[in-house]
Amino acid sequence: MLNIRMEQERLKRGWKQDQVASRIGVSRSAYSNYENGNRKPDIEMVKEIAQLYEVTVDYLVGNDQAVAPEKTIIVHDPKLRAFFEQVMLSPIRQREELMRFWRFMREDSQDSEK
């Protein structure tokens, strides 16, 4: 199941095997062997692949109960993803302040468009 899910996730994003291999630090042939089921990645590599595809390890290995929540937003830009991760780890007071600032910025930009 792991190899099937890996291929599905890659194709869903329109990525080529060599692109994925480069992102996770393996050769294209190694990644191809993972997808073809000829080799099994170790648990650390499975974690790396799950993180890249923004899914859980459980999902990758075939546990259908572990599908990501409905409201998951996939962010492909690494800098933006890192920003959102930091926001989610911030204290609630800081997040509320950031939301107030964002609303202010949106209102300001809408006013300048008029």
Rank of each mutant, 00 (worst) to 15 (best):
Q51R: 14
H76T: 12
N63V: 05
Q51G: 09
K79S: 12
V67Y: 03
L60A: 03
E54G: 06
D64Q: 09
A50V: 02
D64P: 00
Y53P: 05
V55R: 09
Y53G: 00
K79P: 01
L60H: 03
Q51K: 14
P78H: 11
D64T: 01
G62P: 04
Q51I: 03
I73K: 10
K71V: 02
V61M: 12
E48K: 13
T56Q: 12
A50S: 05
H76Y: 11
N63L: 11
E70S: 11
T72M: 01
K47H: 08
L60E: 01
K47A: 14
V61I: 15
E70Y: 08
V61C: 04
D64R: 03
Q65D: 15
A50C: 06
E48T: 12
E54I: 01
H76I: 01
D58H: 10
A50K: 00
A68P: 02
E70L: 11
E48M: 09
G62H: 05
D77K: 07
P78R: 04
K47G: 10
I73Q: 09
V55S: 09
L52M: 07
P69T: 11
V61D: 04
V57S: 08
Y59K: 08
Y59W: 15
P69Q: 09
V75W: 11
Y59T: 02
T72S: 06
G62E: 05
V46T: 06
L60Q: 00
V55Q: 10
P69Y: 14
V55W: 07
A66Y: 00
K71N: 15
Y59C: 08
T56G: 14
Y53M: 02
A68C: 07
V61H: 03
E48P: 00
E54H: 09
P78K: 08
P69L: 13
H76G: 09
I49L: 09
Y53C: 02
V75N: 11
D58A: 14
L60W: 00
D77E: 15
